[in-house]
Amino acid sequence: MTVRTLPVGEHGLLIELDSGAAAEALHAELLRRAAERRLPAVREIVPAARTVFLDGLADPGRLAAELPRWRIPPLDRGDSEIVEVPVRYDGPDLDEVARRWGVTPEEAVRIHSGAEFRVAFCGFAPGFGYLTGLPERFHVPRHATPRTRVPIGSVALAGGYTGVYPRSSPGGWQLIGTTDAVLWNTAREPAALLTPGTRVHFIPVSDNTAPEGAAP
């Protein structure tokens, strides 16, 4: 695994990995070390597509120098809880996504709901997770012109990511469905349903309550 350490101001460190999976593995290791108090005090640990950003370090250079000696186990995909998100696959872009995949809309639903996703990182809005898990042949582009309003709970695709809009907002992702799951609730700890590292299954439903084919 190759890591590149980049300074971010006086107290930040950006660690760049050569793949998204490596970034997720490093993020998991950082959280383990933080939980075991084997990480210097840090204000934020922000995973992203191929990086982990640490902010508020007293001495980022020291951690940068130490990092090459770390043993970072590969990501154990079975190590985190699974969140099941019920989805009505009724999005306005489902047909277009299916066409791009070269399958019927029904098959597209089976592909999407059959995949295991993992929250790689959050961004864009509070509680908006970028979920990986679709093979590369199923990656789709964003809309050239974003919609001015995407409804809350929209399940959407862009690039290799799946995301769920935690609130209504503008957005350029391909909308394939809708969920009533509460993505963001500040009265809950954590406020986000989909936190980095969480595994996610999308369960097809015809209404809000009855999962189809969700038997264990």
Partner: peptide, 19 residues
């Protein structure tokens, strides 16, 4: 420009894979 962080230029390093 402020002098870059004292720990010098960005380095590319190889970390042993664990597991």
């Amino acid at each position: 420009p402020l002098v870059r962080a004292s720990w010098g230029p960005p380095a590319r390093r190889t970390v042993p894979d664990g597991g």
